[in-house]
Each structure stands twice: as structure tokens, then as C-alpha cells.
């Protein structure tokens, strides 16, 4: 026991040193190109980061293609009437990735685009975690991890009670799946056979301290979801065609909730940020840093 604990500590120590040096840890995905739309969305994220001079970069950039496909091609919604009964409910349970969602919601017209520049301002509506009381289009206030799935389950059950055809989508981080409440929710969703519920995992393989396999190993991850009663599909979370196809095939199994595991790269789109834990959350972002980020995105 003692030797295995020592080995683990040594491994964590190496990981910490690598993370502190800013070493890039490979994600296992081939580095893929980004089309101009994906680049533009990331540049809008940089507006937010500069507006607040801070923000979670890594988990925002791993989410872009997932949210882009959802809001371009999958979800039903009406920006002029955010509480339209017939809409699909989208909950970003990994609330720290909210900048990506703000950019999509602003683009679709849920609130004025100028709000992006007021990220984390005292008089702005966009905070470092999303607040549904303040922001049109945000379905649940998240930020404390492990809450969104259960809220989504309640909403999916309400949809079932009223025999509605709208669906519920909940996006989790893989690190977030350390939370016990996620697995309480997974048990319940499986038990209720919630076919109208889809869990999307932004599986970027990294959490705040380091890589998920070393901090708290989740593997075999897809098998865990299957064991809890979900139909499961895996996809490259930056491949928009593959994402569209994966969403079109929902539900993956009849009378079961679905999980789409999206393999992503934390910080995707800025080479220095990719797999670099120093970029989990950045502070003191000034004009020069923001410009360097935009240049890196454009050159990607």
C-alpha cells in the first residue's frame, strides 16, 4: 500500500511540475483544423476574456464545436421568447465553460452582443458562471459542479408528465464527473428511462490540477454510463460533421437516456493553451495578451 501511494505521489508530482512548466499534454486526438466559423467564435470568446480580464480558457475552447452544432443545427429555441414552452432545454452543468455559451447566445440574439465586453463587470449580466435569473437563454445557474444533471432530470420528468416533445440536453465536464451527485443523477435517469434526456460530456481529459486519469481516473468511462442504463455514443468533439450526425441519431437506445461522449482538446484553437493547465483559468488578460490569442486562433 505504501509503495503504491508513493508511486502515485511521484506521478502526481511529475504531473504538477509539467503543469507548472506549462508542458502540453497530448489529448490523444489528432490536431484538427478549425474552419473560419469556429475561429470567429473563439475570437468572440476572447472579447469576453478581455472584457473581464479573466476567465476559464481551456474549458471554454473545448466546448465551442459542441455548442456551435447544438445552437446551429440541433436545439429548438426562440431568442425573442427564451421561455417558449416548446423549446429544448439546454443546461451547461460545467458552468465554468460559460463564455462559449454566452458567445452563441449573443450571436443568436438572446441578449445584446455588447454584453460580451462587459463580462464580469459590476453592471453586466454575464458572470464567470452562468446565472439564469439574469441571462436570457440560460436555463440553470451552474458553476458549482454536479448540479446540472439532476436539474435536467427534473425537467425531463416534467416533459414526460405533460407529454411534451421537447428534449433536455445537459453538458458535463469529465472532471465534473468526479462528483458523486452526477452518479446519483445517472442512476435516477437510467431508472426513469428518460429517453428525452441527453448527457453530453465535454471529455477534454483534463481538470484543474492535471489530467483526469491521474487525478481521479474515470475509465472505463463509456462503460460506466452504459452500466447506469444509458445509450452511449462517442465522437470527436471538434468535428462538426460528426457531431451533427451524432445528435441526429438520438436517442441511442429506446426508452433510455443517451450520453454523447465528446473527445475534445482543452484549450483547442490556441496551441499554447492546448492541454496546458496554466490555461485552465487566466487572469490579468490585457489588450496585448488578447491580441496574441486572436493571432494564434487566426493562424491555427
Amino acid at each position: 500500500m505504501i509503495s503504491s501511494a508513493r508511486a502515485r505521489n511521484a506521478s502526481l508530482q511529475q504531473m504538477t511540475q509539467a503543469a507548472l512548466k506549462g508542458d502540453v499534454v497530448p489529448s490523444g486526438l489528432e490536431p484538427g483544423p478549425l474552419d473560419q466559423r469556429s475561429k470567429e467564435l473563439r475570437k468572440q470568446c476572447v472579447r469576453c476574456l478581455l472584457g473581464g480580464s479573466r476567465g476559464h480558457v481551456g474549458s471554454t475552447f473545448s466546448l465551442i464545436e459542441i455548442l456551435r452544432v447544438l445552437y446551429d443545427d440541433v436545439l429548438k429555441y426562440d431568442p425573442a421568447n427564451p421561455s417558449w414552452e416548446g423549446r429544448d432545454r439546454f443546461i451547461l452543468s460545467k458552468g465554468h465553460g460559460c463564455i462559449a455559451l454566452y458567445v452563441l447566445l449573443a450571436e443568436k440574439g438572446f441578449f445584446p452582443d455588447a454584453e460580451l465586453d462587459r463580462f464580469c463587470h459590476p453592471d453586466g449580466i454575464l458572470g464567470g458562471h452562468p446565472d439564469h435569473v439574469k441571462v436570457p437563454g440560460i436555463e440553470a445557474s451552474t458553476g458549482s459542479l454536479g448540479h446540472g444533471l439532476s436539474i435536467g432530470i427534473g425537467r425531463a420528468l416534467a416533459g414526460r408528465v405533460r407529454r411534451a416533445d421537447w428534449r433536455v440536453f445537459v453538458t458535463l465536464g469529465d472532471g465534473e464527473c468526479n462528483e458523486g451527485s452526477i452518479w446519483e443523477g445517472a442512476l435516477a435517469a437510467g431508472n426513469h428511462g428518460l429517453e428525452n434526456l441527453t448527457v453530453i460530456v465535454d471529455n477534454n481529459k483534463r481538470q484543474s490540477y492535471g489530467s483526469t486519469d491521474e487525478v481521479l481516473d474515470l475509465e472505463p468511462f463509456a462503460d460506466k454510463w452504459r452500466a447506469f442504463g444509458f445509450g452511449v455514443h462517442e465522437v470527436d468533439g471538434h468535428d462538426t460533421d460528426a457531431l451533427r450526425d451524432a445528435f441526429a441519431r438520438l436517442p441511442y437506445e429506446k426508452d433510455r437516456p443517451s450520453t454523447l461522449i465528446c473527445h475534445t482538446v482543452k484549450g483547442k484553437g490556441i496551441p499554447e493553451a492546448e492541454g496546458n493547465n496554466k490555461w485552465h483559468h487566466l487572469r490579468a488578460i490585457d489588450e496585448a495578451k488578447a491580441q496574441a490569442m486572436i493571432d494564434a486562433i487566426e493562424a491555427y
Binding site: S150, I151, I153, G154, A158, V161
Partner: peptide
């Protein structure tokens, strides 16, 4: 039966679920 739920020993999930149901007007 549609409006009766008996969840397991999972209070965190149960209360999140309640929040979701209440958000939808229950």
C-alpha cells in the same frame, strides 16, 4: 402515478430534480 416519484437514497439528486420540476411549473 405521473406525479408521484420515489427516488433512492440520493438526496442531492432528489433536490436537483425537484428544482427541475419546479422550474417547469410544478
Amino acid at each position: 402515478p405521473d406525479r408521484f416519484f420515489m427516488e433512492g437514497v440520493s438526496e442531492a439528486n432528489m433536490i436537483g430534480m425537484c428544482a427541475g420540476l419546479a422550474t417547469e411549473g410544478h
